[in-house]
Design a protein around this nucleic acid. Structure first.
Length: 140
DNA sequence: GCCAACGTTGGC
DNA sequence: GCCAACGTTGGC
């Protein structure tokens, strides 16, 4: 299993909306590195849902429910989406400051590449953030 | 709201 | 193929 972090501005698509929708296709990625990460996602992989700009915190855990396919919102075969479903909300949102201040998360892509919107996490990074959020996920 | 960082575009 | 110009992202 692989672990990922996806970013979204809550004013565009929030975690609450995602939960209300019971899932979505993750569209709008227009960056090759982020696109490549989408293509590497396997069904069942777990993701952290991060709010950028407003809040700047990890809101919850999602999973990949369908692997990549062409982005239905654009007529351009270069771009793809995956389907995501909510797993559970964080008991406590984990803020960017929390992440920056945690020694085990010094090398996280969220800090190193602040503009990347879809990034891989190591299992350890994923578990560390879950623990900080006082949240448990049964499948890991 | 500003601006640094960074990705993309297009002229040469 | 280089690089200046430009647009976007996202932290502050």
């Amino acid at each position: 299993m692989n672990f990922w972090l996806v970013k979204q501005e809550p004013s565009k698509y929030s975690w609450d909306q995602f939960v209300k929708d019971k899932g979505t296709y993750w569209d709008g990625v227009r960056n090759y590195q982020a696109r490549n990460n989408l293509q590497k996602m396997k069904k069942g992989d777990l993701l952290l849902f991060y709010h950028s700009v407003i809040g700047k915190d990890v809101q919850g855990v999602a999973k990949v429910s369908k692997e990549f396919y062409p982005d239905p919102t654009i007529d351009d075969p270069r771009w793809v989406v995956v389907d995501l479903k909510p797993v559970k909300a964080m008991s406590v949102p984990v803020t960017l400051d929390d992440i920056k201040n945690h020694p085990a998360l010094n090398d996280i892509a969220l800090i190193k590449q602040s503009r990347l919107s879809v990034m891989p996490l190591s299992k350890n990074e994923f578990k560390t953030i879950l623990k900080m959020g006082q949240t448990k996920v049964s499948s890991i």
